[in-house]
Amino acid sequence: MADDTSLQDAPHQAFAAVTRLLAERGHPHAPQWLSVPARTAQEAADALGVTVGQIAKSVIFRRKSDEAAVLVITSGDRRVDEKKVAALVGAIGRADADFVKARTGYSIGGVSPIGHATEPVTLIDADLARFDEIWAAAGHPNGVFRLSFADLARLTAAPVADVVQAR
């Protein structure tokens, strides 16, 4: 890692935890530390030299019936269709930064698809399957890891659904 910040601080601990979890689950690609933060799909794509669609962005919603976190993992070039998500999991609302941090253990911009503080209701956007290689956040805005669509499905055990707005 090319960062001078101590790995003992909380954000770096989240990156380290995702690194350990991926290793425990036999994932073949260790997370990478980017020299610049990538809080958006476009920033991540630019830093990695890939298309924005290859970024598996994690979008968190709040389920209204029970306050559960709902994680939608979608392609960076697509927008979540909240009505489609609600049809699958129940009424949802926006989640603020405090809710995201409390439920996932991650700050917005670094929400990994795995290793949450409280297991979210998770859906994977079927449109991500169009890429052989995708990249996801690894617990910190500077942390990412490479995976395939099949890896994402295996690591999250989440259903695949049409959860994005039509093009």
Rank of each mutant, 00 (worst) to 15 (best):
T74M: 10
K64G: 03
L123P: 08
V85R: 00
A44N: 07
V80S: 02
V72G: 01
V52L: 10
Q32A: 13
E119H: 09
A166Q: 14
N142R: 15
D151N: 10
A117M: 05
G26F: 13
L88D: 00
A137H: 12
L21N: 06
D151E: 14
T104L: 04
R20Y: 07
A161T: 02
D132N: 15
A158V: 10
I124G: 07
A41G: 12
L155D: 04
F149I: 14
T104Q: 05
S107L: 13
V70A: 03
H116C: 11
T74S: 14
F145C: 03
K57T: 06
A129L: 12
Y106W: 08
G105N: 10
V89P: 00
V163Y: 03
G53K: 07
R94G: 09
V163M: 05
A14H: 12
E133C: 11
A68W: 03
V144F: 13
D162Y: 00
A30C: 04
K57A: 02
T51V: 05
E82S: 12
L71C: 14
G105C: 08
I73Y: 04
A23D: 14
G139L: 11
P31M: 07
N142T: 12
A45I: 07
D4A: 15
A102Q: 14
A136F: 07
R103I: 01
A157M: 04
A16W: 07
I108N: 02
Q54L: 05
L48P: 06
V89E: 01
P113E: 11
P11Q: 05
S112H: 05
G115P: 08
G90W: 00
A16Q: 13
E67R: 11
G110H: 06
A47S: 12
R154E: 13
N142Y: 12
V80P: 04
A56W: 11
A136G: 09
L22S: 08
T122N: 04
L7V: 12
L155R: 08
G26I: 11
Q54M: 13
R25F: 07
D151R: 04
A86F: 01
R25Q: 15
P31L: 04
A87E: 00
D96W: 03
P31V: 07
A17L: 11
A117D: 04
I114T: 13
P141W: 09
V100K: 10
K83A: 09
T156K: 12
A158E: 06
A138S: 12
Q165W: 02
D98L: 13
D96Y: 04
L34A: 09
L88W: 00
I108R: 11
N142W: 08
V144N: 05
S65K: 14
Q32H: 09
P28E: 12
A10V: 14
T156A: 09
S65L: 13
S65T: 12
H29L: 01
V100C: 08
A14F: 05
A86R: 01
A45D: 10
I55C: 11
T156Q: 10
P31I: 07
I124F: 05
A136D: 06
V59R: 05
D132G: 15
P31S: 08
I114F: 03
V80Y: 01
A10R: 12
P120V: 06
E82F: 00
D3H: 15
T51W: 00
T40H: 08
S148I: 02
G90E: 01
S148D: 07
V160Y: 08
S112D: 04
V80G: 03
A166S: 14
I92V: 13
F61E: 01
A117N: 11
V111I: 15
A2C: 02
K57V: 02
I134F: 09
L48S: 06
D3R: 13
T74L: 14
